[in-house]
Amino acid sequence: MSDPRFDELVQWTEGEVTTRRAAELERELASSEPLRAEKAKVDALMESLSRPAPGLDAIDLRPDLWANVEATPAPRARRLPLWLSLAAGLMVMATLSFLALRGDGIREKGGQGSLTGFEAFVVRGDEVTPLGATMHVGDALGFSYRNLPGSRATELLLYGVDSRGETFWFYPAWTDASRPPDSLHIGTSNEPVRLMEAVRHALVPGRLELHAVFLTSPVSVSDAEAGRLPEHEASTLTVEVLP
């Protein structure tokens, strides 16, 4: 059970009683031995809570820290589950936008002569707009790809590399560093195929290169990062990420 006198003394020590009440307590303290004893307990408790254990301040974490840094692999950038929150808006907006935007400034890579290619979109709230020369760090990205009949590609990798060389996986998602996923299996179609997830990574300002790699056999993302790519065609878009 809490002691009201103790509570008030704590509040007084913390400067949380009125000036008038503080003056009353000062006067009472001068004449009351029990109050002085109680106040001494409060002060002792606060002093004990502030007092560090012996030797604590002599500890230097840095030597062990750098040893740990050497021993621990950096975690992969994570995919945020934007899909759930954006699903309804995206489904409607993406379909409408996609039809409306064809031939209207979409940054498309692959060219008319190529059977493969990809397009990127900026997803900001409910808005889906074609990727231009810039985007912002908080923006999500959506993609569509083209793999026309006659193409031999059956697999796709879609990723970004920033100016520091850090890789951000869009497709497939790589959320568990210990389980690198395989490339996305794709078919051929006369129409562009929209990938119905908007992905937002914790990007930093600077240049971001977006790469789409079309392959003829599956490959894991870790093999791709190690440069072990089977036969493939690649397309790249570059965007400046703004703060």
Partner: peptide, 15 residues
């Protein structure tokens, strides 16, 4: 403030 004062009271009671 309310958490701090409640915590101090709990500490005092426990001791």
């Amino acid at each position: 403030k309310s958490r701090l004062f409640a915590a101090m009271a709990a500490l005092s009671d426990s001791m």
